[in-house]
Amino acid sequence: MIYKILKKYQPLALILFFSLLLNSCSVYNFTGTGKIDAVSFQVNNFLNNATLVEPGIERTFTVALQDLIQNQTVLTLTNTNADLVYEGEITEYRISPMTATADQTAAQNRLYISIRVRFTNKNKPEDDFEQSFSHFYDYPANEQLIGARLNGAIDEIYERITQDVFNASLAKW
């Protein structure tokens, strides 16, 4: 008897299950952002205010942050009057020795980048913040950090920093 009832209502149960599943996805998604009370975002050009200037890294960061937000949310990128605004500057870009050899020469160097980010949420001002984010890339001292290797190092650092900015602003981690 119960089997006949279950068999009869199986299509209805499946429809109900999938509609609940789809509805819950609007509240939470795999990026951890949950429901965002915004439609658009803008990333103003970041400035390079570091003492040691590497040309172009400010543009690379701006684009990396735009790409990450576009890839992990449904927000629309705009140039003006956005619900969410990211702006700031690169405050530190330095290369320093990390470990020494027995003859007092550097065995490993570190590229370190720090970026100050100001985040403004027009719809929820209590979410606004100004915070520094940083990361580093270690490499052997006997190798020069130029060309493709430098670009790879900067990309690796920016991948971490942009994810940290995303988590602080939208995922609330």
Rank of each mutant, 00 (worst) to 15 (best):
D67G: 07
V63N: 12
T51D: 12
A50V: 05
Q42R: 14
V53H: 09
A38V: 05
R94T: 07
D127Q: 14
L47M: 11
T73Q: 07
I95G: 02
R110T: 12
V43E: 00
L65N: 02
Q70L: 14
D67F: 06
V63K: 14
V63T: 15
L75N: 07
N71T: 04
T76Q: 09
K122E: 12
L68S: 02
V39L: 10
I36T: 03
V85H: 00
Q104V: 11
Q42C: 01
D127T: 13
Y86V: 00
Y86H: 08
N123Y: 06
E92D: 11
D138N: 15
F46S: 00
K122A: 13
V74F: 13
D83S: 08
D103E: 15
A100E: 06
G34E: 06
T120A: 10
A64D: 01
I115P: 00
Y93N: 11
F41L: 07
L65E: 00
E58L: 02
A50Q: 05
G32K: 07
Q42P: 00
L75I: 09
G34H: 12
I36C: 03
Q108M: 11
I69L: 06
K35R: 14
T80I: 12
Y28H: 12
P97G: 13
I57M: 04
E87G: 08
D103G: 10
E87M: 12
Y28V: 10
Q108T: 14
T51W: 05
E92C: 03
G56N: 10
A82D: 01
T91R: 07
N109K: 15
N123G: 04
Y137M: 03
F133I: 03
S40M: 03
N29R: 11
I113V: 15
A82I: 00
E130A: 08
T51N: 10
Q66I: 15
V53W: 02
L75C: 07
I69N: 02
T60K: 12
Y112D: 11
L65I: 10
K124D: 13
N79M: 07
T62N: 10
V43F: 04
T76R: 12
P125W: 07
T99V: 05
D83L: 09
E87D: 11
F136W: 09
T51F: 14
Q70F: 10
S40I: 04
V117R: 01
T105H: 10
R116Y: 08
P55T: 05
R59C: 00
P97T: 08
S96M: 09
I113M: 12
Y112H: 13
I95R: 11
G32D: 05
I69W: 02
T78H: 02
N121L: 03
K122S: 08
F61H: 02
L84Y: 03
G56W: 10
I90M: 04
R59E: 13
H135R: 08
G32P: 04
V85W: 00
T80Y: 15
A106E: 00
F41D: 02
V63R: 13
E92Q: 14
T99E: 09
Q104T: 07
V74M: 11
G32C: 08
A82T: 01
T51H: 04
Q66F: 06
R94L: 12
I36M: 04
I36G: 01
F129N: 05
T76G: 00
A100Q: 10
T105M: 11
K35S: 14
A106V: 05
